[in-house]
Simulated scan of single mutants.
Amino acid sequence: MKSVSGIALTVLLAAAGMAQAQDFDLEALVAAAKAEPPTTVYAVTGKIVDTAEEFNAKYGLNVTGKKVNEAGQIDLLIREHEAGNVTGSVSLASDVAVIVTDLIGQGVVESWAPGDIAPHLAEGARDPLVVVSDPHVWAYNSELGETCPVSNVWQLVDPEWSHLVTMMDPLDKPMYADWFNQLGEHHDAAMAAAYEAHYGKPFEGNSATEAWVRAFANNGPLVADSSHVSDAIGAPGQAKPFFGMLSTAKFRDNEDKGYKLAICTGMQPFAGWLYPGLGVIAKDSPAPNTARLFIHYLLTAEGIAPQSVDGKVPGDPRIGLPAGEASGITAVLGEMMVWNTASSPSDLERRQDWQDLWMTELKR
């Protein structure tokens, strides 16, 4: 039962959320945007092109969607800021650690959440604003059976799985090195518990996560780009398919290519992790209202639909995922590691350490 003070606090927070929603005026934002020049939005997905066109059709504006990878977005945002010539007003799903630690901290970009939607977002997804999350899951080939052959990450360091596990390279995809850090900083006890569950004895050492990363790299995993990871796990007709980790967006290969990708549920300590797709606005944008309106659009079911169909989880939990989403991630969300953006400075500071460990220990 809540205390009187707890009830009062809940009422105050609810009232604050209502006031914030009442202060937000979508019609005024649209009107202000119409007075601004054309602008560009950057995202890691090519679907941003169609999203921008649909946004333009809805609001009568002129926004260009441009696919740019994580590192490219950071470079563009910094160079445009330093040159005083900002053309990219919105950045979506770039490098979380760099965005939070460097770009927001140095005033290159800012986070903004619309008042009518912010109260519905998870507390940790409001500042910085998480527009969408990209699930990276442990997956297997279901052609040989409906049950996942792995139930614990420590199995992946045993001889049985030597050279039979695949994922993207932490040296090319820093989010994977940051994932190691998130595990080590927030979930090392869970990694140690998984060790004891697998080996029947307590973990002895300073960091179960570091020990696992070292042993995993030593077991010869196949590192590749996302397409080759999907091929290695999901392609039909394999006598001994790979097990591995990939984004749920690749589960569209099940329909497009006849693949047999399936999420490994019941995995200790997690079935995967949710990488936050931050939506930030360039601080010196000549079209700040257009940028805010675009952020608002991405937080709606209509605006995020092109991504949610690929298993990207909308920031607003009221939206959910479409029934036809290929991976079935909705049923597994409770088993996923939730990313802690407050640890971004540590993720960035320790990124090179994790990459060095990986590079040193990796056996081909």
Rank of each mutant, 00 (worst) to 15 (best):
K2A: 10
K2L: 04
I7Y: 15
L9W: 07
L12Y: 12
A14R: 10
G17C: 01
A21P: 03
D23M: 13
D23L: 12
T39D: 11
T40M: 14
V44L: 03
G46T: 09
G46R: 07
V49Q: 00
T51Q: 09
A52K: 06
F55D: 10
N56F: 05
K58I: 06
Y59F: 13
L61H: 08
N62L: 05
T64N: 07
V68A: 05
A71W: 00
A71M: 09
G72R: 08
Q73C: 02
I78H: 11
R79G: 14
H81N: 15
I99G: 13
D102H: 02
G105Y: 08
G107M: 08
A113W: 10
A113S: 15
P114M: 08
G115D: 01
D116S: 06
I117Y: 02
P119I: 02
L121I: 08
E123W: 14
G124C: 06
D127N: 13
V130H: 01
V130G: 07
W138H: 02
A139P: 07
L144W: 01
V150D: 02
S151V: 07
W154A: 05
W161M: 06
H163Q: 07
L171E: 10
M175A: 14
M175S: 15
A177G: 11
W179V: 00
W179C: 02
N181V: 03
A197S: 12
H198L: 09
V213D: 06
V213F: 05
R214M: 09
R214G: 04
A215C: 10
A217C: 08
N218P: 14
N218R: 15
N218T: 14
A224N: 08
S226N: 12
S227L: 11
D231H: 13
D231G: 10
A232Y: 09
P236Y: 09
K250T: 13
F251G: 09
F251P: 12
D253E: 15
K257F: 04
G258M: 02
G258H: 01
Y259K: 08
Y259W: 05
L261H: 12
I263C: 08
M267R: 01
A271M: 04
A271C: 03
W273P: 12
W273I: 10
P276L: 04
G277R: 08
D284S: 12
D284Y: 11
S285M: 02
P286R: 04
N289C: 10
I304L: 09
Q307G: 14
R318S: 02
I319W: 01
I319Y: 07
P322A: 08
G324W: 08
T330Q: 11
V332K: 03
G334H: 04
M336A: 07
M336C: 12
M337I: 03
T341D: 10
L357P: 06
M359H: 06
E361D: 14
L362I: 12
R364Q: 15
